[in-house]
Design a binder for these strands. Structure first.
Lengths: 219, 219
DNA sequence: AAAATAATCTAACGAATATTGGAATGTATG
DNA sequence: CATACATTCCAATATTCGTTAGATTATTTT
């Protein structure tokens, strides 16, 4: 008969999650953490913000229990506190893309760019990759590949792509992916590959989108 | 080759959705609107806030494109701009319940209350309701029932329940539901029914949870 | 023990937000 | 045409939040 549990109390706690995802920087940090656990320094570098600012944002994320930490020597590794957090990020992003016209047109411009793969379905992509009809490359940093990647994908970080071009077959089609639809590394990879005579496309999926749609991830 | 689309731009727009759901009051308004479209006055009354404050919150929800309006005479009816908005509310709520211990214990106290139905599966509930083995009652205001309700449920608003008790069979089990897990109307209904000798339980699902789990809604 | 490094903490500032009360707008009603 | 009513607009306040900078803690390395 505990009447201390009042309605506002419940909504306030749910709103804590809302507040945590109400900042662009924090959303970017969540997306980065969805690629695997990372140190504060690395997160700050990849989000192009000051370490101290990153630390402050990570603090509020931790207070909302969306991330957890693990100490290893003088480094503190942050990770999402569950796969549901990554799914929430995707959910919010999809609602935004559904209803915010400004965002939608921006994304349509990106999708209409010459390097977009014309609505290739995930399953057929998977089977083509398995059969070797296409080569799927993961152009994210190697650590993110190690934390989990698409099936049959090989790691080919953007920074090393030019140097390691010889590893790629010149005849078969290359399909590049990176962190998700807001990540532009795969676009750059495709540009570079085409300049060198390869047949290359990108997919906007990252591992988060891939697994949120029920498809398997290797690691 | 439009390089004007910058990364921060994308995250900022997604964060607009985050900001919209970062306030307890707005979350409550979203949950109320998930029951069907409502006027500003009604929303203010049901959320127990001033009409002008409700109007202000609805304004920010509308600027985030989460709600839409329709004028009818001197009334303005607000509605969610899509079913994905209701699903987002459920998603945020579930993440909160998964990670915020304070919220979890509060809900466990509520779930452990004597009127909680012990993890009845939705499908079996549906078949029992179809066969007449149980009577499902919707204790929300009649307008919300009209906007959509569980299959085989009959409208029995909490305010009229006592007066209309004769409509309910005394032998069969009654299952009450209302707006969702944070709504306490079904608890009150169960308390009242048991006092009068009925066998009554509640389910925490509302129409939003029900349909978010792929089950059909009647209207 | 001292220096270096990763991360956090503290203080401070301006910007954004929630809430309140009063005034204004638009629509229907007598 | 005046009044009533639903809703929005506007201004003012207290509060919270994001960001920056400097100082501090904890751990490793020399």
């Amino acid at each position: 008969m505990n009447r201390a549990i009042t309605k506002p109390f419940l909504y306030e706690h749910v709103a804590r999650i809302g507040k945590a995802i109400s900042s662009p920087k924090r959303l970017e940090l969540i997306e980065l953490l969805a690629q695997g656990e990372k140190t504060v320094e690395l997160l700050a570098e990849q989000a192009r913000i000051d370490t101290r600012l990153a630390s402050a944002h990570l603090r509020t994320l931790r207070e909302a229990r969306l991330v957890e930490t693990r100490r290893e020597g003088k480094f503190i590794h942050y990770r999402l506190s569950g796969p549901d957090v990554a799914r929430l990020w995707i959910n919010v992003r999809e609602v935004a893309e559904e209803h915010l016209v400004e965002l939608r047109v921006a994304l349509e411009q990106m999708a209409a760019a010459p390097d977009a793969l014309s609505s290739e379905s995930r399953e057929s992509l998977l089977s083509k990759a398995r059969s070797g009809e296409i080569v799927v490359i993961d152009v994210r940093p190697e650590a993110e590949y190690a934390a989990g990647h698409l099936p049959h994908a090989r790691s080919m970080p953007l920074a090393e792509l030019e140097r390691r071009l010889a590893d790629l077959p010149i005849g078969t089609e290359i399909v590049a992916y990176c962190r998700g639809p807001y990540c532009l590394m795969s676009d750059e990879a495709v540009r570079l590959l085409r300049r060198r005579g390869y047949t290359a496309h990108k997919i906007t999926d990252g591992v988060t989108e891939w697994s949120a749609n029920g498809l398997p991830i290797e690691s």
